[in-house]
Amino acid sequence: MDKTATKPSSLSDVAAAKQKKSPGAQSLGVGLEARGVHAWFSGKHVLDGISLDFWSGTVTALIGPSGCGKSTFIRTLNRMHEFIPGAQMAGEVLLDGKDIYESGTDVTKIRLKVGMVFQKPNPFPSMSIAENVLSGLKLAELKVADKDALLEDCLERAGLWSEVKDRLNAHGGSLSGGQQQRLCIARSLAVKPQVLLMDEPCSALDPGSTLKIEETISHLSSSMTIIIVTHNMQQAARVSDYTAFFLSDGGPGSMIEVGPTSEIFSRPRDTRTENYVTGRFG
C-alpha cells in the first residue's frame, strides 16, 4: 500500500521497495528451467536460444518491445506453442528436472502443473462463476472431496471472493473485465498448478483492476512460480523478483539480460536494457 501512497520517483525505487519487502530469500528451488529454447512460425525463426531458470516462490517478469518473442516463449513453457499452425521449436523445458517435450509425456498433465492466464479475460460463457472456477476439475477429470471449500479458497486467493460470494451462480460474463480476469486466475488455481504463466494479464484492464491483480500475484508468489509477460514497466518493477529483458533486432528475439528486478531497473549491465527501462525506446 505504501507503494502507491509514497509515489516513488523512479522505477528503480519501486523495484527496490519491492525487494526490501521480500528479499527473494524464500526461493524454494528451481521450479522451471528453459534450456536453449528456439521457436519458429512457418519456418520463420522468432526465438533464439533462451535459457532461463524460474525459481519456485518467485515472480519473474518478461519485458521487451512488441514482437520480441515474450509471448511465444511463455507459450513454449506449457506446450501451448504447438497449437499455432506452422509452429516449431527446439530446446528443452525442464519441469521437476524432466523435459516436458520428451516423447511419451502426457501433455495434459503438463498443462495441469503449468497453468496459464491469458491476455484477454476468457471465462467460459456457458458456465456460472462457480462452474468456471471448478471447470478445470471437470476438464481434467479430477476428483475433489470438498468442492465448496476449493471454490472459496480459489476465489479468495484470486481476490474475488468478497465480490462474488453472493452470486456464485451468476454468469461469468456478468462480471466486469477486471473481475473476469481474476475469475480466470481463480480458475487456473483450482487445478493446483506449480507454475502460473500470465501473458499480459492486465493489458485489457483499468488501473484499479490492475492493482487488484498485482496484489493477487504478490499473495500467490509465496506458494508457486509465477512468470508474467508485461508491457508495463511499473508493473514489472512492482510485482517481480526477477526481470528478463527480451529484444529482437529484426531477427529472432533473444534474451538480452536477466537479473534481480532491482538491478535491472537501477544498474542494468546492457545499454539496450537501460535504454528500454528508462523509456528511450520501445
Binding site: N78, M80, F83, T108, K109, R111, L112, G115, M116, F118, K120, N122, F124, P125, S126, M127, S135, G136, K138, L139, A140, E141, C184, R187, S188, V191
Partner: peptide, 29 residues
Amino acid sequence: IPNDLREAGVALGGTQWRTVALVVVPAAK
C-alpha cells in the same frame, strides 16, 4: 466461438475432446 476459449480449456489440462464437449459445444449450443 473464439479461439481463446479452446486455449483456456486446453490450458486447464483438458484433452481436446473434453474441451470440445465441455466448453466449445455448450458455448455454441
